[in-house]
Design a protein around this nucleic acid. Structure first.
Lengths: 163, 163
DNA sequence: TTAATTAAGGACAAATGTATCTTCTATTAT
DNA sequence: ATAATAGAAGATACATTTGTCCTTAATTAA
């Protein structure tokens, strides 16, 4: 349904929503490994999501890494798709017509118009945080047999040392 | 949702289901123009769909062209997607995980499993002929402002001259 | 200030997808 | 048979996607 880029982005972003916050940053290597994606490619994709008011922030240097603020966690999946320019997947006409509407529909229009709202809803109604909260030991973000690894002890910011 | 290849293929195939039969063959140039697609690319795509027991047949030479038998018209859209290796779009996990099921679902699984059957149904329940029959003057397969052009007077086989 | 660490960014490469063009071959009208 | 027509097939070119690598910049710890 989505491109590799988008798949990796969604997995990474859900992982970060679950495992990071302003006080718990995670390195790209850790994220890439956790979601079963190429490290450098993951880095490149996540770069795009740290621009402007994008859902991810990052800090370089020792104990730096990627993290998601509570504000970022309130982003919907659809907003992420829009940032990646992949929202056309759920907005476009099935047959690729630019002018496909009630007046001049394509042959699939009548059926798809019943499903499209459901598809869109799936990406609109829940925030990244909602998805993160649902993650438990059964839910996975990678293809390994092992359950989703819990966060490693690393990158804790010194401003709030709690261990 | 689908690649250009698949979009063009679906449009072309629906056009042929509507406008062609064993006694009324249509040239690639006509098909490509009718569905608003590049001629040569359309030719290449349709080539793939004339192999084996694929839904389209073709006859070269004068008065030749592409056509769809009644058998071909009974093909479902899903079957066409399978022939084009694009059925993964409606079968795959949203996040691209190979192992995404009830036991070890991805975070989107619970929601998508309600929608996926609807999406699949959309492509399974109707044959190309069903779609063709629904085509009327309002329904379009191209992006032009003009209504879908009716078939041109050409390529009529001499075995059954009815005009 | 220096060294270590980490992300950012650019250059590049491979794979795939998209598109065009030319030549070849099959069929049919004459 | 021959010429004309039209699709088949392959070569080629271009674009996008996917992926890697290396340098640069930023930050922190010492």
């Amino acid at each position: 349904m989505f491109s590799k880029t988008t798949e990796y982005a969604l997995r990474a972003i859900i992982y970060l929503a679950k495992h990071s916050d302003i006080n718990y940053k995670i390195g790209i290597a850790t994220v890439a490994s956790a979601i079963d994606a190429p490290k450098s490619f993951t880095a490149k994709i996540l770069q795009k999501l740290t621009k402007d008011n994008f859902p991810i922030s990052s800090i370089p240097g020792p104990n730096g890494g990627l993290y998601m603020t509570m504000e970022g966690k309130n982003t919907t999946v659809l907003q992420v798709l829009e940032l990646l320019n992949e929202d056309h997947v759920i907005n476009k006409c099935v047959l690729g017509l630019q002018e496909c509407n009630e007046e001049t529909p394509c042959p699939m229009h009548a059926r798809y118009k019943l499903i499209k709202p459901l598809l869109q809803d799936m990406f609109i109604t829940k925030t990244l945080n909602d998805l993160a909260l649902e993650l438990d030991h059964r839910i996975r973000l990678n293809n390994s047999i092992l359950p989703l690894k819990t966060e490693k002890k690393r990158n804790k910011t010194p401003t709030k040392p709690e261990k």
